[in-house]
Design a protein around this nucleic acid. Structure first.
Lengths: 217, 217
DNA sequence: AAATGATGCATAACACTGTTGCGCTACCCA
DNA sequence: TGGGTAGCGCAACAGTGTTATGCATCATTT
């Protein structure tokens, strides 16, 4: 009997799909499975999202929203380098908490033949743009060399993305675990941007404590 | 008529699959398609590789071999920092030339439900281990701070991987193109490892010229 | 209030995928 | 000259995304 229960099937489908992706991985994402768990038929996926790709796209946007939520919890202090590093930790923490989602957002082509459009990528870049403000303040306070803040932010993004990706891929093991690489990579990045070694080490250490507080669940 | 033509169906299947992956992407990788192009039946895939995953695994090893081949063409000079940067360029060049293969090698879970085993990853790490020698010499000559060469090599790997992944994902556009990010990221990495800014810039510039020569097709 | 339109979903089918059991064929070896 | 066996063609099964068809319900209009 159509048009009776579930005042909003859309959100139900998205929630179910996101949960299935998180709990059982990409291979669990099928129209029939999703429809069954949402107690509807596969057609609902097509009326609301135009197909499986549309549903995946919606989940990807949900993933960007979660990343932005992580970033929004980072406080702005008088140590902009630490602020930047906390952002890095938040980036990694979000990827770990939503590993399959993360792969869909940045992993190129992956699940159910879904491919990102230029609009999708632009949305992702917009979320990442909040890092530029941190870098700006790092330059203003003399911690970083004068230069293109957007480029330095990209270096940060690139390095964090590479580490998270290799970590989720299982490539980082003893004695170069993801945790160990992450800490030293932060120092390398900050020093490479112009900061002193001691100041960089101190700010990275500060960011670790702050992350435990500001990003506490 | 079995057992007549094609003295070695194995290599034919691998070649066909690798070509299809390179030319038409992951969605073209199907047992029937591969069997048709190799002028055999889908059963050949199972007798030789035990299934689609086995064939993909063989292709992944082919990808590692190509990466190692790229690395082997890098010369060893008295500028170890430039040597390291040429390796970075070779890494990126290989990924660009074999983009779909690269995604299968390092992109976590992707095509046809294939998943890397620990042996596969160990093989990949072994190929990457050739970078450590460069870093060692960077430390010996005083260009880099004393420390764990393996860790610095990982920083290099992580950053190159992140850049290549975002580049292939289409995330790096004007004014922060992949080319621009790559050059400045190299300088940041080298400076972060302990080198001076001027020396780093010079070695990165040197590596660009050397790459065009040593990795010329 | 009743008829009309459109919306949203259920059912079933189509083309496709990986995978498997069966059986034949061509080879190797005794 | 016989097995024995390895390698592959054929057909079928369960699964996928997608689409055509039809029906039930709502919203709207008259």
């Amino acid at each position: 009997m159509p048009r009776k229960a579930d005042p909003n099937v859309r959100t139900t489908l998205i929630d179910v799909a996101a949960r299935l992706l998180a709990e059982e991985g990409p291979k669990a994402l099928s129209t029939r499975r999703i429809a069954a768990e949402a107690e509807t038929s596969t057609m609902a996926v097509y009326t609301h999202f135009g197909g499986m790709s549309g549903l995946v796209r919606e989940i990807v946007y949900e993933g960007f929203a979660r990343l932005q939520n992580h970033f929004s919890r980072v406080k702005e202090t008088d140590d902009p380098v630490a602020d930047l590093c906390v952002h890095g930790r938040a980036y990694r923490g979000n990827a770990q908490a939503n590993s399959h989602l993360y792969a869909a957002m940045f992993g190129g082509e992956s699940l159910s033949g879904f491919e990102l459009t230029e609009d999708d990528r632009q949305h992702g870049r917009y979320v990442l743009a909040s890092i530029v403000g941190c870098v700006d303040r790092c330059i203003e306070t003399g911690r970083f060399r004068a230069g293109d803040a957007g480029m330095v932010a990209h270096h940060m993004w690139v390095a964090m993305h590479g580490l998270v990706n290799l970590e989720l891929g299982g490539y980082l093991i003893e004695p170069w675990t993801a945790d160990a690489c992450f800490e030293t990579q932060l120092v390398t990045l900050v020093v490479g941007a112009g900061d002193g070694l001691d100041a960089a080490t101190a700010s990275v250490a500060t960011s670790a404590d702050r992350y435990a507080v500001e990003l506490a669940t």
